[in-house]
Simulated assay, not measured.
Amino acid sequence: MSETPQLSDDPATRTGFAPGDRRFGRVNWLGLYTLAAREIMRFTNVWTQTLLAPLVTAGLFMVIFTIAIGPRRGDVMGVDFTTFIAPGILMMTVIQNAFANTSSSIVISKVQGNIVDTLMPPLSGGELVLGYLAGGVARGVLVAIAITLAFWLFLGIVPAHPLVMLAFVVLGAAFLSSLGMVAGIFANKFDQMAAITNFIVTPLAFLSGTFYSVEALPEGLYQITHLNPVFYLIDGARFGMIGVSDSPPLLGFAVASAATAAVCALALWFFRTGYRLKA
């Protein structure tokens, strides 16, 4: 009498591949694309808050500083004050929005308890980092494009070195997106996230030469400012937009790239180990 064949409990035997197998090579391109698309759709679906609002905020900064300080400030580094602060305000807005995109996505998922939906699919730590990074960089670049067009239309400012400016905008968005991932993983509550934003991100954005040349700072603050990667991002964007800077653009690009790589590595380690992500 023949025996009834037994079905194996091993998924690999039944289907020919185990859960998590990468059928398209070493990178799960479909999963990576899906995560990146989700992160981009998160902010494009509410574009009035994520794209229009930053444009209005940047415009208000320009109007307030131009009216309050511009007429009395005179030229800074050979350009008028309004033109000088335009790149700083642009980069400040870019990095704030890039940070908000990744940090809010992760912390909201943790608070709502659905972070598991992101962690369960067969995505490696590197793919998670790249997926979240894509959303933050996309938001930062779109904000930069909108503000640049506004500066051209209302102030007549045309980027002096557009490729250099684009490189620093992308790098700045990547740096703050990766920092947003680290902050989102570390924070378990909205008030913790607000504390990180208010006491770390905002001071970094405001005290990095956004509204002034660092050459005017006292010696101690001058040295401290040069340890801040955000200073090099703002300074590089200023060179790309109006052709003047406080430090060599290549040095700034190298420092900002190293800082971005370091923070991305930390975010990668957090995802791989499940630090503050797994119960």
Rank of each mutant, 00 (worst) to 15 (best):
N188F: 00
A183G: 08
L60E: 01
I89V: 15
I242N: 06
W29H: 11
I157P: 10
R14T: 12
A195Q: 07
L128T: 02
V201E: 02
L119T: 06
I115M: 15
V230H: 06
R72H: 13
F43W: 15
G31R: 08
I157K: 08
K278N: 10
K189M: 01
V201M: 11
E219Y: 11
F239K: 03
V169D: 03
P19G: 00
L90D: 03
P249D: 09
M1Y: 02
P159S: 09
A37T: 12
V46D: 01
M91N: 04
R26Y: 02
S104H: 09
N28S: 04
L30N: 05
T102H: 05
I85S: 01
F81K: 08
Y232Q: 07
F154W: 12
P71N: 06
G31H: 07
K278V: 14
T4Q: 09
A216K: 02
T83N: 06
M41H: 12
F84W: 12
I67Q: 10
G125H: 06
L7I: 10
T93H: 04
M165L: 15
G16N: 03
F17N: 07
W152S: 13
T210N: 06
A160H: 10
V214Y: 01
K189L: 01
Y33H: 13
L52Y: 00
A53G: 00
P5C: 05
S213I: 09
A187C: 15
L227W: 14
L155S: 05
T44I: 15
P218F: 09
I200Q: 03
Y212V: 05
E219A: 14
A173D: 06
T15H: 13
L207A: 14
F211G: 03
Q49G: 14
F186P: 01
S213H: 06
V214T: 15
L7Q: 10
F175Q: 04
L266T: 12
L128R: 15
G172L: 03
F253W: 11
P159V: 13
S109Q: 12
L217D: 01
A216Q: 06
L221R: 00
R14A: 09
G59H: 06
T15W: 14
G136M: 11
L90Q: 02
D9F: 11
P19A: 02
A205R: 00
I157C: 07
F271T: 04
V182N: 04
I67M: 09
L30R: 14
V46R: 07
D117V: 10
F81R: 07
P229K: 11
E3Y: 02
D9S: 12
L166R: 03
H161G: 07
D117N: 14
G113S: 12
W152R: 15
P162H: 06
L51P: 04
M1Q: 05
I145F: 09
A86R: 07
D9E: 11
G156V: 10
P122A: 04
M241P: 01
G113T: 12
A144C: 10
V107F: 00
L52N: 02
A160G: 09
F43I: 14
S257Y: 08
P121Y: 11
L90C: 05
H161P: 03
A187T: 15
R238D: 09
V137S: 04
F24S: 08
I196A: 13
A146G: 04
I85N: 01
L142E: 01
P229H: 11
Q192H: 07
G16S: 04
S103D: 04
F24M: 08
L32A: 08
V46L: 14
L142T: 09
R38W: 13
A150M: 12
T82E: 11
